[in-house]
Amino acid sequence: MRLELENVSMVYQSGTPFSARALEDVSLTVEPGERLAVAGPVGSGKSTLLAILAGVETPTSGRVIHGTREISRRQTPPPGSIGLAFQSPENCLFEKTVYSDVSFAPRRQGLDGLEVRRRVENALAAVGMDPASMGQRSPFSLSIGEQRRVALAGVLAMEPRALLLDEPTAYLDPAARRDLIRQLVELNEQTGVTMVMVGHDMDELARFAGRLVIIDGGRKVAEGRAEIILTDSALLARHSLDPPGTVEFCSLLSAAMGDQVAPALSEEQTIETLMQIMEGKC
């Protein structure tokens, strides 16, 4: 499903001395099936952007369009069409068992028992959890990383047409982060579900995103293919972001050799570049 923002501005608590401008005239199109990343420094308005894109927050001005349908306070998105995971979604777990928490949304959608079961098992499998061994445990007895995956499975179980994730890897350990990103990419490739992810770890976004948007101070300051934005160290530095490690490595290498080394976005690509350089030297 295509998601569009047209000239969206957002002011929290407007008309009070506490009014805070969070977004300023942002336009954005998320193409069906793509993996878009939204990056920017803390407080730049990323979470606000995601909430507005999902239709749970109404912008002060501007239009939000899901597919062909305009979203407003009265015209909310149809239930189950958008899967939204706020920052730390594990804070929203509430059922007695993992199974019942993940099945909450499909049960609310009024699906029959068999379909609910299929969805729960698929969703848990998609985040790398075993339904048989985890299903009957209490979500509150799990580690934060496991809780996070249960919460994400709860969103996936709706089988939404677009999945919006706000810093899904925050507070996870490095291995869990890597796994989660890999699982999200796999899910997108297998099912074609549109994905928007907010984050600020560029290594992670490099592994995830096809396209990237940078916002700073509530404004969209850059947008483009991931390999172009992520290799533009000057641009990233202007917005308090670090380039991915591989890009940084390549630019250090360039400086040391006095030679232009093409920046690489993945470890594999970096190794390839290194091999070529070494072959040239020998």
Binding site: V56, F86, C92, F94, F104, R108, Q109, M158
Partner: peptide, 30 residues
């Protein structure tokens, strides 16, 4: 929490007393 649970299909308003009382659990527990 309300927004997140609503996105998952929880109802926090409308319905009879029992429905509403159950509807509030997804917000109350977290």
């Amino acid at each position: 929490i309300i927004k997140a649970q609503k996105a998952r299909g929880a109802v926090t308003s409308g319905g009879g007393l029992l429905v509403r009382a159950r509807g509030i659990m997804p917000v109350l527990v977290p």
